[in-house]
């Protein structure tokens, strides 16, 4: 578990670094876009910097949906004049804000609900696996008798012969 956590933390750090560099790269090239990305990707920055949800892939999950929520705003900016006024208007646009933060919220909700949803799937898979193992165990007992369950290995007497024999 600790290895998984370490691996996830390492992956999260790389991811954070990548995102920061990408956003910082925008600063000299497209300052308006940088401003929108900086604001709209706020949930991602928070999770990356505060290390909330210490679960594997928390940053990737929130970041993915947060980016998906930011892209309409960025496209709208790029289709317009693309200056700071347009960027400010977008940042103040309720529709874009709701869309963006709702997407990030869905990401956070996924982090909370995913284990419970997956548990159902694991339950189904476990049941199927258990039935298969039980069938195999029955075949073993049919073939080798009760002795195969242990004990008779040390004292072969023949009393543990299966009924079929």
């Amino acid at each position: 578990m600790s290895a998984t956590t370490r691996g996830t933390a390492g992956g999260g750090a790389k991811m954070t670094l990548l995102l920061v560099l990408a956003v910082l790269g925008l600063l000299p090239l497209a300052p308006a876009t940088f401003s929108v990305a900086l604001v709209f990707l706020l949930p991602t920055w928070v999770i990356a910097l505060t290390r909330s949800f210490r679960v594997p892939g928390a940053l990737e999950t929130v970041a993915g949906l947060n980016i998906a929520g930011t892209i309409p705003a960025l496209v709208h900016l790029w289709k317009g004049p693309g200056d700071f006024a347009a960027a400010l208007a977008i940042m103040l646009d309720t529709e874009f804000l709701v869309t963006n933060f709702a997407a990030a919220g869905i990401g956070i909700m996924l982090l909370v609900c995913a284990p419970y949803i997956a548990r159902s799937w694991v339950d189904i898979a476990s049941t199927r696996l258990r039935r298969r193992a039980e069938a195999k165990r029955k075949r073993l007992v049919d073939e080798w008798g009760e002795g195969v369950t242990g004990g008779a290995l040390k004292s072969p007497t023949g009393k543990d012969r299966p009924g079929g024999g």
């Binding site: 578990m1 998984t4 679960v55 594997p56 892939g57 928390a58 990737e60 999950t61 929130v62 970041a63 993915g64 949906l65 980016i67 998906a68 892209i71 309409p72 997407a103 990401g107 996924l110 982090l111 609900c113 995913a114 284990p115 419970y116 949803i117 997956a118 548990r119 799937w121 694991v122 339950d123 476990s126």
Partner: peptide, 24 residues
Amino acid sequence: QKALAMRRGYRYARLFSYSIAFLT
């Protein structure tokens, strides 16, 4: 099982998130 469920849940969530981002 709990660990398995969590591992799989987070993996599916991540995949879902990536998929939405890619589709957008």
